[in-house]
Computed example of a mutant assay.
Amino acid sequence: DLQVLAQAGEAVETQPVFRFLHAVVDCPRPLVAEVRGNAVGLGTTLLLHCDAVIAATDATFAMPFVQLGLVPEFGSTLLLPELVGPQRAARLLILGERFDAREGERLGLVSQVCEPPALEAVAGAWCRRIATAPAGAVAATRSLLRGPQWRARLHEAVDREAAVFAERLNSVEHRQAVAAFFGAEGDG
């Protein structure tokens, strides 16, 4: 993914992933995520946009943007401090610390943790509860939670982050970090 974005150069904001980011911000329907295994980078920041996140006990999360010479994306510099506070957000975004599902639940990123075999059933139950609730009330409540002002701020944050992300993709720091990552990966 990083190599594709790096080849995009200054036009990174026109890549399909950034169109996807804006589509998620504008999604009028509730979003429910299931997480198992590793959720890294966009795999974690996407969860900040979900209405419910069900994680298996084996799920781990990380946002190692800075370690890759990049900056956070998908509005995470706006949403994460609102969710966990600025100091915890700085720890997670600047240090890129990995955390497990239980810590994700304590932070408010994860709605419910369950054993891996139960993940689909638990997430399915959340979806059924949402789907059987009065549709108009669900839509109105989601609109109040994630209304036009919220979306406008978030679109602005996504665009601002994307511009800096594009600059960082072309930085010496990023190239060195990626080379070190792939070099270390080849050592194992």
Rank of each mutant, 00 (worst) to 15 (best):
R128G: 03
L47M: 13
P16L: 07
G186I: 13
A125E: 05
A162D: 04
A152Q: 13
V158K: 02
V158E: 10
G75R: 01
V4K: 14
A123R: 09
A166N: 02
D159C: 10
R88Q: 12
C114K: 08
A56F: 05
P16N: 04
R142P: 01
E167M: 02
V110R: 00
G37D: 03
Q67T: 11
E120R: 10
L48S: 11
F182K: 08
V40A: 07
A52Y: 05
G147C: 04
E73G: 12
T14W: 02
E185Q: 13
R88Y: 01
G85I: 12
V24F: 07
A55F: 09
V158R: 08
V25F: 07
A11V: 03
I130M: 07
A123T: 06
A137W: 01
T132R: 04
D159Q: 09
T45A: 14
A179P: 04
G136W: 08
A90S: 12
L80K: 05
P81R: 11
L31W: 00
F20S: 02
A179D: 14
F165R: 07
G104Y: 02
P148Y: 03
F61S: 13
V17Y: 09
L107C: 08
T60Q: 12
V178R: 07
R88I: 15
A152Y: 02
L144A: 15
P64F: 05
L68F: 12
V158I: 15
C50L: 11
T141H: 02
A140M: 10
A157S: 14
M63Q: 15
L92Y: 13
L92F: 13
V40W: 02
A62M: 08
S143Q: 11
A166E: 01
P72A: 10
Q87P: 00
A166G: 03
A39H: 03
P116T: 15
G188Y: 14
G188Q: 13
T141G: 01
A180F: 02
A59S: 14
A177K: 03
R19F: 00
G104P: 02
A140C: 09
D51Y: 03
A125Q: 12
G9V: 01
V53A: 10
L109Q: 02
Q3W: 09
E105Q: 15
Q3D: 14
A33N: 03
F20M: 10
L107K: 03
V172C: 08
G183D: 04
L79G: 07
V66C: 06
M63S: 06
Q3I: 09
E156N: 02
R142H: 04
F20L: 14
A125S: 13
Q15T: 09
C50D: 05
D159Y: 03
H155Y: 01
I94N: 09
A163C: 03
E167T: 07
A180Y: 00
L78P: 06
G43E: 11
Q87V: 11
G69P: 01
E103T: 15
A101H: 07
V66L: 05
E115T: 05
D100F: 14
A137G: 04
G85A: 06
L109R: 00
R146W: 03
E105D: 00
E34Y: 00
D159K: 10
F61Y: 15
S111G: 06
A11I: 03
G136R: 13
G104I: 10
V172D: 08
L92Q: 12
E97M: 11
C27F: 05
I54Q: 05
L83N: 09
G75C: 05
E167G: 11
R102H: 10
E10G: 00
L5K: 10
A121P: 01
P72M: 01
A177L: 08
T132M: 04
R142L: 06
